[in-house]
Design a binder for these strands. Structure first.
Lengths: 341, 341
DNA sequence: GGTAGCACTCACATTGTGTGAGTGCCAAGC
DNA sequence: GCTTGGCACTCACACAATGTGAGTGCTACC
């Protein structure tokens, strides 16, 4: 018995199941694919594949359905990435290039992926920790509040309000602004503590506490895990195709997606490599609500490397090659746009 | 026949239907409410209510269900707003006060409403057009890009990148920054054109185009309808309670909610009055996907009046008094927090 | 106007039956 | 030793038939 043919059979099963959403039987398989053997032979192969855990039967008198393990093999060994058409690429490029700022870029990207994959799309904002600071701005607000605005080279703008002990002295603020920008420009968050120590020494003791609080606000903002924002789109697609996919178990999926924490964990776990497209299938997500969903993600970055991830989430029975192609394409354009801005 | 009792019957029907989610019959009604008459009498009233279009029968041998018109009367005439408990109020206040910036305030508010109402929550960002500008910052980026950052008194921070014709001259930028802030500080978008004309005249002709583009970027950003951002939370609640509520028609609802445009239209249409809680029921939403949903919204603002709206979206068979109370409570805290920051 | 009684309707649950897709296995064939 | 045709078996699902009960509308009576 040829192992090659078995894998062909597995591939055929996955493809048919994804296309039809119904368990696939031996007869249907030989009719729709050129396998060169009879249904009976396929049945033997199927029995072997089932024994090995790649496929399963929903019930005795039904066809076979791929298991998570089966999809895994399909994704790892049987997929040839199909490139998008030239027209699609152009559409992606021009759509993203019209964005006016980072929020807009992220927003357009996530919509685009949702549209292309007809699934739920997710885009992380560029990580603060992996970006370099471009500028720090201090804006006095009233007499005792100071707005600290941080701008990164990936275009993110973060703000914090700070309450000061004493009334704000414009002159001191101006000096601090200049000093800060000299110290931080082009630095990454990890380098900041070193760059900022000793800053207070340049000021009179009376202002030391002000300087200290500004510095700590900056450091806190950049360190905060919760600031790794993530944006979703296309949840309606879950209900559309998913209505028949998940049946009534759509609630847990939505819940999981609303939990930013869950998403962040998954995305960070998958951050093995920027360039590869990585896939989490079914129970591999390690989350009860996502047993029947798969994640396809990849990294995007600027000239210095990966800064965050984009991805698409759909039923385990998704079109993996298509989803992977779409996600990868959008990530590449994102990288290009970030580098060019 | 007493009209008062008929309204009592209508109220009882709405309350029971909301509680049980099942058509309510005449017998059940007299058992669960003190109406002082027999089922047969109730049936007569019901026939009249049905004739008048306030209730309907799903099928011949079933109980009655309120129509949109019936809910309307219930909301307009039969509802007594039930105040939240002191504990709930404290919880809301302390949760919102922990917010670190505007994004955080909005995020917490929307989660809070979703949690309180067990429905989908929606919060608009403070309208740029109704806020006053607090500060304009110009940050040169590279040699030919200028980042324009706008900060409003409601805490919103908006940014735009601008490509300049000529290389950026720091000195000119500094002067422009000062001039701009003198001109715009405390002004509302509607007053800006007047405040900014003639600004270019203060600069050498060589810089006129730079000034003009900065001014137009500022005006465009503030005028842009699309910048009226809106944030959602609690879509999972739709599937939870809604699984039985909407059946399989959940898709259209999610689609409508993802269309920011639809939401914005509804919110702006309902913006009659800041202080009132207004309600759109079923087909009143004028949207095919939202036939079975109702909107409860109210405005929030700073000391100068309403700047945006918050709301909750759920099935037409929602707990109107509870939802209205929750939405109103959060709006009030929001107003307080915006005024205090 | 309110009430009791009664015939009528009709969704829904339950049960029973038939059909067909699909399987597993075995014996024969290349 | 794979491969194949044949065949008995299983079982989900669709469909029809039946029974039940909640709820109604109507009418005659108080």
């Amino acid at each position: 018995m040829s192992d090659d043919r078995r894998l062909d059979v597995l591939r055929a099963i996955v493809e048919d199941y994804v296309a039809t959403r119904e368990p696939v039987g031996s007869r249907a398989l030989v009719e729709r694919h050129v396998l060169g053997v009879s249904p009976a032979t396929i049945r033997n192969d199927m029995a072997a594949l089932e024994e090995a855990g790649y496929i399963a039967q929903p019930h005795t008198s039904a066809g076979r359905v791929p298991t998570d393990k089966g999809y895994r093999v399909f994704v790892d060994r049987l997929t040839t990435v199909k490139p998008l058409s030239a027209a699609e690429r152009r559409a992606i490029g021009s759509f993203l290039e019209d964005a006016v700022d980072l929020d807009d870029v992220v927003d357009r990207s996530v919509r685009l992926i949702a549209q292309l994959t007809q699934q739920v799309a997710v885009v992380q904002y560029p990580s603060l920790r992996r970006s370099a600071l471009r500028h720090v701005e201090l804006v006095p607000v009233g007499q005792r509040h100071l707005l600290v605005v941080l701008i990164t080279d990936t275009g993110r703008v973060e703000q914090r309000t700070l309450e000061t002990d004493a009334e704000i002295d414009e002159v001191v603020i101006a000096r601090l602004r200049v000093q800060l920008n000299v110290s931080v420009a082009g630095r990454r968050p990890s380098e900041l503590p070193a760059a900022l120590t000793g800053l207070a020494a340049a000021f009179e003791p009376a202002h030391a506490s002000l300087v200290a609080s500004v510095v700590s606000v900056i450091e806190e903002t950049l360190a905060q895990e919760s600031e790794e924002r993530v944006v979703l789109a296309g949840t309606a697609n879950l209900a559309r195709s998913g209505g028949s996919d998940f049946g009534h178990t759509l609630g847990p999926v939505l819940e999981a997606l609303e939990e930013q924490v869950v998403l962040m964990r998954l995305l960070s776990e998958m951050a093995e490599d920027e360039a590869t497209v990585s896939v989490r299938i079914g129970r591999e997500t390690q989350h009860a609500g996502l047993l029947e969903t798969s994640f396809v993600t990849t990294g995007y970055g600027d000239e210095h490397g990966a800064v965050a991830r984009v991805g698409s989430i759909g039923p385990t029975r998704m079109d993996y090659p298509g989803t992977m192609a779409a996600v990868r394409a959008v990530a590449r354009y994102l990288t290009r746009i970030l580098a060019g801005s």
